[in-house]
Design a protein around this nucleic acid. Sequence first.
DNA 1: TTTTTGCTGTTTGCAGACAATCGGGTTGTC
DNA 2: GACAACCCGATTGTCTGCAAACAGCAAAAA
Lengths: 229, 229
Amino acid sequence: MGTIDLQIRRQNASLRILVEDKLRQAISSGRFKPGQRLVERELCELIGVGRTSVREALRQLEAEGLITSYPHRGPVVSTISYEEARQLYSVRALLESFAGQEFAENGSNEEIVALLETVEAFEAAAKSGSGTRIIEAKTAFYDCLMTGSKNVFVKQMLTSLHNRVTLLRMTSMTQPGRLQNSVFEIREIAAAIALRDGDRAAALCKRHIEIAAKVALDYLSKNPVETSE
Amino acid sequence: MGTIDLQIRRQNASLRILVEDKLRQAISSGRFKPGQRLVERELCELIGVGRTSVREALRQLEAEGLITSYPHRGPVVSTISYEEARQLYSVRALLESFAGQEFAENGSNEEIVALLETVEAFEAAAKSGSGTRIIEAKTAFYDCLMTGSKNVFVKQMLTSLHNRVTLLRMTSMTQPGRLQNSVFEIREIAAAIALRDGDRAAALCKRHIEIAAKVALDYLSKNPVETSE
DNA sequence: TTTTTGCTGTTTGCAGACAATCGGGTTGTC
DNA sequence: GACAACCCGATTGTCTGCAAACAGCAAAAA
């Protein structure tokens, strides 16, 4: 007899977690725009849960920096200024180059194989042109990269930073030609890691983010991020 | 007639924040030991607030990594393994050297003056031998360092890491002779920053943390951290 | 026009209630 | 005595009602 689906009850996740994910997704997808007020009661009936769950989820998102709470005025989807965006990319370059270096020097062979697979998936997604597939593939690549770095703190921090980048509501991918370059850069990074060349991997990661930062910041200085209200 | 205290109620901070700080302090001071269960109701009557505030504060501390929640069993003061401690010091070295470099290159002259003052305060505290004064002075130094780095993300992340280090319940300061060396290292760091030598500041910060890490990890491998229950 | 006053919507916090769940002890069986 | 099934107390997860505090705004007063 085959193994019956062990995960029948994926209901394990508490309501709070579900609400968190829903809100995160709503913010990332742009359904909630930066600057928009999030009224408790509205969220409650929108999601169909009690205030307790909503409030605790909001606290979590606040800790992640996705929303900002003003006393007695409630939470608001965080906005991110040009200067903050610059700082964000700056520290992201630092952490990702560290992750790349650690991966190259300490990652297991299996992890390298897995990384190369995500690169191929990314290339395929890029060819397909599907926006969601591209984002998924890129997320998978970064996830693999961070896992291979063998540092839970770096992984946590980078995940948080990635979430916040979406507040800019503009993936640098949307720039013409940027996607192709991105594919190339990522392939190079993976190659350096596969060759166990930590320094080169770090340099490539750093450069990759710096380019993305330049594109994003240039765009941002011309088209200020759209906020709600 | 003298001005009557206008600030009778500086109740600005919401209860939740107060509870957070109380709990953070209780954990940092060792009143709550790693591994100890934190029962909601006990905390409620201990602090004298309702469950709502306690639960939201717990969510915040969980996001910071100070406590860990198990489904239907409640929160527990986080423990930190040897491997995690290694990773923590590793990323801390990375971020602090970055902060040091940025400070040296972009800090204002006023900030440099302020930094030098915290160094002197630290030296004075070290001479006094008072544990709490030393910790305060060192905190002030780091706070100044992070502020001068002009990067809110780095500051946030480092603050979180500093909080978690206290879970080890052993400041590397307690090692004989370590305090004197620490004073020396910090003076050197500040000097490099004052000279605007970013590379040297970064290298010194990195070395400073690496030494602290070595001391702490050596100690940790011999004396496993005491947990409660 | 400027200041004061009061209203309204919203957050903040408390208390009580209930279901779901977990761990541990007890019971029953072999 | 060993082991499994079962039950029970404790605790969390969640919901709801209620009171107080506060920000923003508009109307009233100067």
